[in-house]
Each structure stands twice: as C-alpha cells, then as structure tokens.
Amino acid sequence: MQDKLNQDVTIEPGVEMSQYYLSHLKELESEAIYVIREVVAQFENPALLFSGGKDSIVLAYLSRKAFHPAKIPFPLVHIDTGHNFPETMEYRDWLVNELGVRLVVGSVQESIDKGRAKEETGWNASRNALQTVTLLDTIEKNKFDAAMGGARRDEEKARAKERFFSHRDEFGQWDPKNQRPELWNLFNGKKHQGEHFRVFPISNWTEMDVWQYIHMENIPIPKLYYSHEREVIVRDGAILSTSPWLKLKPDEVPTKKIVRFRTCGDMPITGAVESDADTIEKIIAEVAASRKTERGTRADDKRSETAMEDRKKSGYF
C-alpha cells in the first residue's frame, strides 16, 4: 500500500500557494488538525473512537499528520460489536501497527455477558444500539475525558447542529437544547468531574470531501469499500452480506453479486450497493452521481424519522 507519509517531499509553492488561499480540502484538513491538537492541549486523557470506517480512518491519518514526527499521543478505541466484517478487523490491526498507536477494545459481547446490555431479537436485530452501553463503560473504565469521533454534520439532520466540542453530562447524554455556543475557533473544553466531551474534528466535511481527501492523500482503505463479489441476500430492498449472524428467512436464498459498501458498520445490518467501482476514482464518480445518502443504506436509521436523534441523546456517537 502506498502512503504519502512514508516519503519525504518538499512542496514547491505552486500557483495556488502564491495566491494565498487554500483549496477547500486543504482548509478542511487544516481545521481538523487544529481541532485535534486543541483536544490534546485541553484534555488530560483523550481517545479516538475508531470504527474501521473511512471517516475514522481519515481521522487517524489526520492525527498522525498533526503530531508528526511524534507518535499520536492518544489511543484508538474500537467498540467491537463482535459482528464485524473480517476486512475491518484486518485493517484495524494493520493500521494500529502502522501508526504505532495503542488500541483499546470495548467489547459489546462482554457487556451482554455481564448483563449490562440485552441482545435484540427478530429479523433485523442489531448490536448498534448496544454499542452505546459499551462505549460509555469503556470511557468510564479508561477515564477518557474526550472521545474524538469521525461524525460529520452532513450525515444526518440531528448531526447538523452538533458542535465540534460536544459536552456530555455524567450520564454521557447530549442535550441539544443546552449546547454551549461555539464561536470562531475558540473551543471550550471546560468540564466538571465525571463529565466528558465528544469531539468531531471533521464536522464540516461531506462524504465527497472524505473521498476526495482519501484520493488526494493516497490513504489505504479496507477492501470492503471497493467492488468485489460477495454472497448476499436482498431483504426489504437492502442488500445484506451473508454471515454467521444473519438469520435467513425460509424463502431467502443467498446469491452472488458484485457489490461494495459505502459504510462499514455492524455486518448484519450494513447494506451493500451493487457497484463495479474498484478504484477511488470510480468511487468518487459513483458518489457524485449517487442519489441516496450513505446512511440511507443503514437499516438502523430507517426505524423512525428521528432515530438518530434519539440515539444521540442517550450517548451514541
């Protein structure tokens, strides 16, 4: 895998530089790095929530840039649902090694075994909602006072109002009516004992920005995002990968399709799209032409029009 950070390069001041303005991607990059550095400066024990998805990958990569040549001064935290795509796990372990960073795993299975969380039942059962319990437990156990995540405001209506520095009470809850105003780039990370913050350095990025950035920086991503052949079923219009956790209904017969994933979450509920985009360029072209939001392929948001907001309030990412 090629990776720009492994080469030493000198950038000649080009046309763009001598005009003293940045392209939108460079400006977003600079903003995100500013936020990440601010977190390390303002908090004692921050962490980066790493889901294995492209947004948190970009975040990890930005973190490396922010502190180079020093190592990233905080751990990656993976909330492991136990229902991961094998490709996600393989990538995670490669990245942790590549970055030389500490990995903290919070296990949803463990939360279930301890009776802290209750497994859902039924055809569309998912462990997405259970992540909240494990996440909050992991934050508490490791005494993290700031958890950075790769959420973007363009993903969903409720996220459009999120701050960069999002204050959470002792119960990890978000109160959308009582958010601190956030002005200029002056971030207020002050808190009382037991409270913590969620911080979203790429708040202002869109899905397109993330892909363009991955392209510009040559960032390796899990194979799931590229077109491949996979055994799937089609349920309620969603293309789902077969896996040990997907219970088949009597009339469901797995078939092979050429697909890729636009997000990588909990395996039994993350929908694939039929696609032959096998390069970043093709993915960008596909995203540009696409008429569905990426969350539109996630079964969990469809449950109700305000599903995301309800989960956010209770402490979800």
Binding site: V9, T10, E12, P13, Y20, S30, E31, I33, H68
Partner: peptide, 29 residues
C-alpha cells in the same frame, strides 16, 4: 515549516503547520 513530513516554503492563514526555530528557547502553548 513542516506539515506531516512535508517541508513547506511558506505558511499563511489558516494553515495548520509545525514551525521549528534555529535557537532553543522556552516556548509554550
């Protein structure tokens, strides 16, 4: 003036960079 492992010829607002100086002086946040 550094950014990641790039060495830059110049930096202007609103660029995030890392600056190193010729002399060792005490500088903090």
């Amino acid at each position: 003036i550094e950014f990641g492992n790039e060495k830059l010829e110049e930096a202007f607002a609103p660029m995030s960079v890392t600056i190193t100086l010729e002399d060792e002086i005490d500088i903090s946040r």
